[in-house]
């Protein structure tokens, strides 16, 4: 029996290690937040960054491609050329697929087939953050839902939780598939999740997101909590929709139709 007891204690000791760790950590660990970009004095700040997408201003294929290309280029988003490995931060789909809850075959002609740009909604109540077991995805004080590529364990719980398909996983090493490397932005490794970051690295330098800059006014970026911000002005004068039905409070709004205001 003495031998078997020793055996048992050994086994018990090994398996209890895991629990012991997490329990003490839960109690004592200082909760260091994952890395954030340090904002310089010239950095742009807000209480809650938001984006308004004015679909009326997307007219040609080129209007869509411009915003997609600039984002993927400056953020070193790989192009694998196949759907299975696909990684994307911003892309398009037709209205009826972007807003399945708003399906309506009696809409004015062309609306159902109209393409909309899609990216992370930077939800105010983000399920991806709620489920992440390591805080690798987290909400910043300015409302941006950010991703720490060095902490992510690649469990992909956040991908199951995001109701808007905003997240991509690096199924394999992305580096050989980056067309032109931007040395100023980190590349990712295989096995981690990534998504649109509202250009936090540009905001820190006082610049608006890259897609906004090249959109010719089709994308507007600003502070949703500031009644005088550009986004609030547009939202108060135009009818907009967002994917609100699931309670995540998205920070991306879409203007579909109506007269363009001056």
């Amino acid at each position: 029996m003495s031998i078997s007891r020793r055996d048992f204690l050994k086994l018990a000791g090994i398996s209890s290690l895991g629990i012991g760790f997490s329990a003490t950590d839960l109690l004592w660990k200082n909760r260091a937040e994952a890395i954030e970009y340090m904002s310089s004095p010239k950095g742009l700040t807000a209480k809650r960054w938001a984006m308004v997408v004015d679909l009326r201003k997307f007219k040609t294929e080129e209007d869509y491609n411009r915003v997609i290309d600039i984002c993927h280029r400056i953020h070193n988003v790989p192009d694998f050329g196949n759907l299975k490995d696909e990684v994307k931060w911003i892309w398009t789909d037709t209205f009826e697929h972007v807003f399945p809850f708003q399906k309506n075959e009696y809409l004015p002609e062309g609306v159902q087939e109209k393409k909309a740009v899609l990216f992370c909604n930077h939800c105010d109540n983000p399920p991806c953050v709620r489920v992440c077991p390591t805080k690798a995805t987290f909400k910043r004080k300015d409302g941006i839902v950010a991703q720490d590529y060095h902490r992510c364990i690649g469990c992909r719980f956040c991908m199951a939780a995001c109701p808007f398909g905003s997240r991509s996983f690096n199924w394999r090493d992305p580096r050989p598939f980056i067309k032109r490397l931007n040395p100023k932005f980190p590349t990712r490794t295989k096995g981690v999740v990534e998504k649109c970051n509202f250009c936090v690295e540009r905001l820190a330098e006082g610049l608006k997101p890259a897609c906004v800059e090249v959109s010719n006014g089709a994308l507007t970026f600003g502070d949703l909590s500031d009644p005088n911000s550009e986004v609030r002005k547009i939202l108060s004068t135009n009818y907009s929709i967002r994917k609100a039905e699931l309670g995540t409070r998205p920070s991306v709004f879409y203007i579909i139709g109506g007269d363009e205001d001056a």
Binding site: G18, S22, R130, T134, K135, F157
Partner: peptide, 24 residues
Amino acid sequence: MGQPMRVMNLVLHPTPNSVMFWDA
């Protein structure tokens, strides 16, 4: 797991709002 070598992050950054934390 995409990054199995980082599994200890579950323990280093315990996150009680994640169901996975409780599952572990």
